[in-house]
């Protein structure tokens, strides 16, 4: 599945980071690298962007951009 489909409160492990150019590089630089665990924390009042938790900090990205990130959900 892709990261934008991850439900709020769920966690997942990143499989691959797609996209290109500045956006992809930015993802990688901010620590969204394969094998990293991310948690979908909340959505903004208008439903988009979303707040993620990873590597001990909070990051916000747009749902449209999150489609580029392949993840595997961690089942509780």
């Amino acid at each position: 599945m892709t990261l934008d489909k991850l439900k709020i409160g769920s966690s997942a492990i990143i499989k691959s980071v797609g996209g290109e150019g500045a956006l992809r590089r930015r993802f990688l630089d901010m620590g969204l690298t394969p094998k990293t665990t991310v948690t979908m924390f909340k959505a903004a009042p208008m439903g988009d962007p979303v707040e993620l938790h990873l590597r001990g900090y909070s990051l916000t990205i747009r749902l449209e951009d999150a489609k580029n990130i392949e993840v595997v959900e961690i089942k509780q």
């Binding site: 150019g21 956006l23 901010m30 909070s58 990205i61 747009r62 951009d65």
Partner: peptide, 11 residues
Amino acid sequence: GKPVPFVMELP
């Protein structure tokens, strides 16, 4: 051209 990606830390 592309706007700078919105990938922002929430401190």
